[in-house]
Design a protein around this nucleic acid. Structure first.
Lengths: 188, 188
DNA sequence: CCTCATTTCCTAGCGCTGCTAGCTTCTAGA
DNA sequence: TCTAGAAGCTAGCAGCGCTAGGAAATGAGG
């Protein structure tokens, strides 16, 4: 049954095509522009085909988000040390704003720090945990990591949408890093 | 022309009614449930009346958001000291989730730290600034405040949507407060 | 008191959305 | 070659934000 295998392969390719196209369109024109009609036209299939791959639009956004978490984890793991990892995080968010929105703002109630959390999320969390560990002091490492992640996320979110001026981002980051490093060193 | 004054007063009341109704509906069923049709029905007027008060749905959300900033500033100013103010902030966000969404997630590109920033935003910012000031050390106070605000916002946002378990919120807050207090004391 | 101009408000409808029922076309196996 | 089933399409539903155009209520002038 090699034919059937080919069909399954083609189906998987189309599955990925939907995700990739949705992501590219979102990054180019924002998530508001990602409608099922436009998406269908871009992949050159009719609308209902989307629903044979995903339960609904939310599921497509979720698939894009998961891809984002995978890439974020890989990106963070490429760096060593608190400051480089923090910079990588913020840079990732600013380089892929629509992707970051899919991950943290739109739907997708993916849970961190849980048993059934997808592996990419755990990996990203672990990457941050490993670089903040030297500064945790006596505090619970998991929670300390969550606080640091929150601060990073808040900085990213408030800067996007111009709630905070983009201008001082570098200085704010420096303050944050400095603040994290300022206590609890068990080494260094 | 007392009649005209009465009409203006009634119009102002209806204006406020729209805002209050939108807010209540959002808090009860989420912003997705706040459609112009439902809103119109609740205030017992037809849809187009909404557009004689606001440019569009975004403007209504914006008006709710501004009300939220006013209340938040008042709430923060009711407390003294870092820890109480931080607790008040998080408590406000968790007690008014839809309102908080209107303020920080939905549309409304209101800018902090700018000349034309609405007064309520400045007041809230100032409230936080005043309590973090003792811990700023040599760093720029405005930026230090922005970083603290970001951390608070991130904590709130990640906890909502269950990205972080609601359970450890108190401990995370304690870690954050501890972290802020740990450096730069010019007094104490 | 009546008439007319203006303001106020509603009905109806446009183009869009996410989603789906049901038909048509294509393909694999006997 | 014929038939069962899979695959993908057309067409349509209910709901969205928003608005054009007409009806009803209200004020001023004769």
């Amino acid at each position: 049954m090699a034919i059937q295998e080919r069909r399954e392969r083609e189906r998987a390719e189309r599955h990925q095509l939907i995700i990739t196209t949705a992501r590219r369109l979102a990054e180019a024109e924002g998530w508001d522009a990602v409608t099922t009609r436009r998406l269908a036209e871009l992949i050159e299939y009719s609308q209902p085909v989307l629903y044979s791959h995903f339960a609904g639009k939310d599921a497509i956004v979720g698939a894009v988000a998961l891809e984002g978490f995978t890439e974020l984890a890989a990106e963070l793991n490429r760096h060593r040390g608190l400051e480089p990892v923090v910079r990588a995080y913020v840079n990732f968010a600013e380089s892929n704003p629509a992707l970051y929105d899919a991950m943290f703002t739109l739907a997708t109630p993916l849970v961190f720090a849980q048993e059934e959390t997808p592996q990419p999320l755990k990996d990203g969390f672990a990457a941050i945990r490993s670089v903040v560990e030297p500064f945790a002091g006596g505090r619970d490492l998991g929670m300390f990591t969550e606080v640091v992640w929150s601060a990073l996320h808040g900085l990213v979110m408030l800067t996007r949408g111009a709630r905070l001026p983009a201008k001082g981002q570098k200085e704010r980051l420096a303050i944050l890093v400095d603040q994290i490093q300022s206590t609890g060193q068990t080494e260094a």
